[in-house]
């Protein structure tokens, strides 16, 4: 992978990154955020623009596996990185356990915050440094605001997804 990065000062810059497993090459001005690239340039509108200031979490995506606010990240700083959006959460075998659990527990009302919630949840479930009790999960998820107040069901969905991921791991079947 080319890690040399954009070099030209001013004007448009070249950017190469991977989005949901697909290599992408773009040319763009430096003041474009990762969120704007995803939605406006790549048509991946699952990632939502909420507050646009890193306060609500609607724009949460995973960058090299870590949950981040796409609205506060300059796209040109994602050179060579792997970005996963909600569109990349499911695999060829079906929905991600987090997606299934959100459906099962009705963990949304209007749905606007849901993609961000699920991206944070999927990252948290892979992070062994974060505890699995209610308090630890709520703390880890506090960067995702839900104006409808679906928090209770979101929490339950995350617990269910954790159980499913654990049983998948036991069967050695998770990709």
């Amino acid at each position: 992978m080319d890690h040399s990065g954009p070099t030209r000062e001013g004007g448009e810059l070249a950017l190469a990154l991977t989005v949901n497993g697909e290599a992408r090459r773009l040319t763009l001005p430096p003041n474009v955020t990762l969120l704007e690239v995803l939605r406006d340039r790549l048509g991946l509108t699952g990632t939502k623009k909420g507050c646009d200031h890193g306060q609500c979490g609607a724009c949460t995506v995973r960058v090299d596996g870590q949950a981040m606010n796409a609205c506060l990240r300059l796209a040109v700083m994602c050179e060579g990185q792997e970005v996963t959006t909600v569109e990349g959460l499911a695999s060829e075998v079906g929905l991600h356990p987090v997606q299934r659990a959100f459906l099962e527990h009705d963990a949304y009302q209007c749905g606007f915050c849901t993609p961000g919630q699920m991206m944070s949840a999927s990252a948290l479930l892979e992070d062994e440094r974060i505890g699995s009790d209610d308090a630890a999960v709520r703390e880890a998820m506090s960067g995702n605001i839900c104006r409808c107040g679906a928090y209770k069901n979101i929490l339950e969905a995350i617990h269910t997804a954790r159980e499913e991921l654990a049983s998948q791991r036991k069967e050695g079947g998770i990709s």
């Binding site: 949950a67 981040m68 606010n69 506060l72 944070s120 990252a123 998820m141 960067g143 995702n144």
Partner: peptide, 12 residues
């Protein structure tokens, strides 16, 4: 550190 900001912001 863990008392500050959110997971996403601390990751960045």
């Amino acid at each position: 550190i863990l008392a500050g900001a959110s997971t996403q912001l601390r990751n960045m």
